[in-house]
Each structure stands twice: as C-alpha cells, then as structure tokens.
Design a protein around this nucleic acid. Structure first.
Length: 474
DNA sequence: CCTGGAGTTGTCCTA
DNA sequence: TTAGGACAACTCCAG
C-alpha cells in the first residue's frame, strides 16, 4: 500500500521560485519529502570542484532553511539511495528536474527503468534552460553549430515565453523524519580556505534574486558598453546562481524584459539576453557533442601538438606570469572563485596560444576554482578560445594581453586590485612593466625578477609560433 | 542541389 | 591619430 506522500528530489534546482518539479509536487496534494543526494559520481576530472563544493554547501543550507529544515540529506549512490527510500516510504510519486551533463542524462535513463520496475510514477521537468537542448533544430532536423542562427531560432521560440511560476503558497511536508545534518555530506574540507569567499558571495535563492535586481537596476542600461570592463562591477555575476539553479533562466529573461520596457534599456537587455542564450547554446552543443569537455569538436585539432610545460602551467595557475592582466585574472579566480568574462578569454588565449598548452589543462583548472564551474559553459568557452570549437574564432585571432588590458582596464584599476605589487606604477607603465624605465620602476618599488616576475613568454615570438602551429593543422 | 551571405568577443600595418 | 584592409579560406545555414 502506498503512502500519500511524494519525494521531491532536488538537484541543480535549489530554489522555490519557478521550480516545475516543486510546483507539480505541491499540486499533487501529496505530502512532500524534500530530498538531496550527494553522489559525486561524475567520471574522470569532473568530480565537483573545491570552490563549487563550498557554494553547494551554502546553497543547500539556504534552501533547507526556506523549507523549514525538512530536507533529507543523503550521501551515496543515487540508485541505491532512491531504491532504499522508495522501499521505505512507498511514495505515490517522485518529482525532479533534469540535469544535462552526459552522466546525468545516462543516470536519468537508468532511473527510468528502475522506477518502472518499482512501479513508481516519476515525473521530470526542465528547470535549468529556456529551451531543451534538443528542441532547437535547423529546418533539416539537425542541431546547430553556429551561434547566431541558433540564437535567432531560439528567440523565435522565446517571443512568447512561458511566464515564470511563483513558489507555491504553501508546502505540505511529510511528518518529521530523522535527517542526517547537511554537514554529513562533507562538502567542506578541513582547511577553511573558503572563509575568503564568505564576504563576497551570497549562495542561495535570496542572494540570486538580489544579484539579479542589483544588476537590472544599476547595469542593464549600459550593459552593451560596460560588460567588457573588468574594472567596473557591471556584469550580473549570476553564473554560479544559475549553475545551481537558485534562479530560473525564465525568471531572468522575464525580469530583464520587464525592466527594459520600463527603463528603455533595450540595447542592454538585448545584449544581456544574448549572453543568457550563450548558456543555452553551450548546452545545445553539449547535447550534440557529449564528449565536448574532453575532445575537440573540430576533429583536425586532435593533431595539434601541445607543449607539456609544467612550470609555465604552474605560473599561469598561480598568477605569476609577469603579464599583469593575466596575473590579475588568475589571482581573481583563486581569491574570489570567479573571473570576469573578458579576462577569461584573455587568460585562456595566453595559455593556449602563447604558451601552447592544451586547452584541457586550463579547462580543468577552471573547473576546480570556479564557483560557476559548469560542464557545458566551461568546455564551450575553452574550445572557442582554442579554436577547436564548432563556432570558433579564426585561428589568427590571438589576443594581445597588453592591448586588451589597455582597452578594457584603461586606468589599470583591475590590475591594481589583484596585483598589489604594481599598485604604485603609473598607469602608462602598468600594462607592460618590463618596458618601464628603471627610475619609474624603482620609484614604484617594483623590481622585475625580484618582487614581480619578468614575463614568462615573449608575446610577439609566441604569437608567430602559434600562427605557424595553427596553420599546420589546417 | 546550388548559391550567396555570414560568421561574439582581434591584431597589425599602412596610408 | 585613426580608419580600413589583410589575415584565409571554410563551413554553416537559409532560401
């Protein structure tokens, strides 16, 4: 005999607003048992990274508080946990939202069989994307590989978007269960390195909504102009919130359009929505190229011979390359768990094109350090920079980190924030301190090779080498 | 099947 | 100082 209860399985949808699985569960009239399973079963290098673990811990804590501390926390094999709970509670139904990593897609397929065998009604929903990756197709039925036509096709579907659904007024929980504490998931390591993140971020649904509102109020209007400026806090920084599903992309789209109509911010809104669609496009690509995180989309790139330079890689990771904008970016990543998008491109370009190191090394480092580490977005970004993506930059497009810094950090403010040893250099010298006259260096207390490294790579020479290497595999 | 237009994010040189 | 063209062709996509 079945209980009048349902399991609501939370995954990358840690919110109450516009959460279709939660809504379906609450409309079912059944008593709800909210469940979270920590099962770090991703293959190879894709175990959840250190920074993401901190975010997840805090996001779960926030969600649990919003659910009257009713979440049942479980660690272990998802199939085993679910079958055990189904045996024990005999729920009438199970509700969850889908995930899109290949291993999660496979898990969901396997679970469908399990649920069938156990005779339980399971319903899954899309809470993470505006469109399902497989719903956008060219007229011949095949997936897109170029962004712009993908964008146009998606926008047609989004002309009449579904209105985001508010959280249910009332949730009827199943009677008290003994639940292991959140701490039993062991998401936080012993070293409290993550203390430094606490003043910077607010994981959880309320923090996500605050970030959206702050962005729309202060930065949407000028987004098209200011989005590329790492020295301004002009981006939404919603990426970690979106990754963990603390805010719905439909909510973001809806509120953006509302704000744009009220404040005549159409230009900024269009650009911002286009960024939201890049997230969709990455998931579209991941769906048509499930091995995209490991293998170049353009097959000829498997012929590329990358340099195995452990020392240069380590210097890049630590922000000790001697190129200020690179070091600022890599230190921002290490210190804050996030990098401005423009700077992601610059540091990635240096690693892949100037240092000649395999893009997958950078991809893995980002995976461990980023709070917004997301398989589809991370892989798509790295493949784009490396030139092996479906829709990549022409191979001769190699960022010059000095020119980029001059253009997008014109006063050197961003560099000074993360590379304090260069703080006192005049702005005209801060972008390439190795060319500064020695009296200026001394006056600023900078001693190249002593308290700030000499550049580990000659930008001009390495650019030429990269052009040749890329010409080779054409 | 053919055709033409277009393709996130750049750099460097020249006039 | 600044604006425009070269860098290279190739693939994608819509009609």
């Amino acid at each position: 005999m079945t209980n009048r209860m349902a399991i609501l399985w939370f995954r990358q949808d840690l919110r109450l607003d516009d959460n279709p699985a939660l809504l379906a569960a609450s409309r079912s009239g059944l008593e709800i048992l909210p469940l979270y399973i920590h099962d770090d079963f991703a293959p190879g290098s894709w175990k959840i990274g250190g920074a993401s673990r901190w975010w997840l811990h805090n996001s779960l804590q926030s969600l649990n508080a919003r659910l009257n501390a009713r979440i049942l926390f479980q660690a272990g094999d998802t199939r085993a946990v679910l079958s055990g709970l189904i045996e024990r509670f005999k729920p009438a139904a199970l509700f969850y939202n889908r995930c899109y990593e290949p291993w999660n897609r496979n898990l969901e397929k396997n679970l469908a069989d399990l649920f069938k065998r156990l005779g339980i009604v399971a319903q899954s929903f899309n809470a993470s994307l505006l469109n399902e990756p497989w719903d956008i197709k060219k007229s011949d039925g095949t997936p897109y590989s170029v962004y712009t036509p993908y964008f146009r096709a998606s926008m047609q579907k989004l002309n009449e978007p579904k209105r985001p659904q508010n959280a249910p007024d009332h949730i009827r929980f199943k009677e008290d269960q003994d639940s292991p504490p959140l701490e039993s998931l062991n998401l936080l390591g012993k070293t409290p390195w993550y203390k430094k993140l606490e003043p910077l971020w607010s994981p959880g649904e309320p923090g996500a909504r605050e970030a959206l509102d702050r962005f729309l109020k202060n930065h949407l209007k000028n987004y098209a102009q200011e989005r590329d400026r790492p020295d301004l806090n002009a981006t939404s920084a919603l990426s970690p919130h979106l990754h963990f599903g603390e805010i719905s992309p439909r909510r973001v789209l809806w509120e953006t359009r509302k704000n744009a109509a009220l404040n005549k911010s159409e230009g900024g809104a269009e650009k911002f929505i286009s960024e939201l669609l890049w997230r969709e496009f990455s998931n579209h690509l991941l769906h048509s190229h499930p091995d995209m995180a490991e293998q170049p989309i353009k097959a000829k790139f498997s012929r590329m011979e990358w340099r195995n330079d452990k020392e240069a890689l380590a210097q890049w990771k630590r922000g000790q390359t001697g190129i200020p904008i690179i070091d600022a970016g890599m230190r921002q990543l290490w210190q804050t768990g996030w990098i401005h998008n423009r700077v992601r491109m610059i540091v990635a370009s240096l690693l892949v094109k100037n240092l000649g190191i395999d893009w997958r090394e950078g991809e893995r480092w980002f995976w461990d350090c980023l709070l917004d580490a997301d398989l589809a977005n991370n892989a798509a970004g790295w493949q784009w920079v490396a030139g092996c993506g479906a829709d990549a930059a022409p191979y001769f497009r190699i960022f010059n980190p000095v020119a980029q810094a001059r253009k997008f950090d014109p006063e050197g403010k961003y560099i000074r924030a993360f590379v304090p040893e260069l703080e006192k250099l005049p702005t005209e010298n801060i972008f390439e301190p190795w060319t500064a006259p020695s009296p200026i260096l001394s006056a600023a207390g900078v001693n190249i090779g002593q308290n700030y490294p000499a550049p580990i790579v000659d930008l001009k020479v390495s650019r030429q080498k990269a052009l040749e290497a890329y010409a080779q595999i054409k």
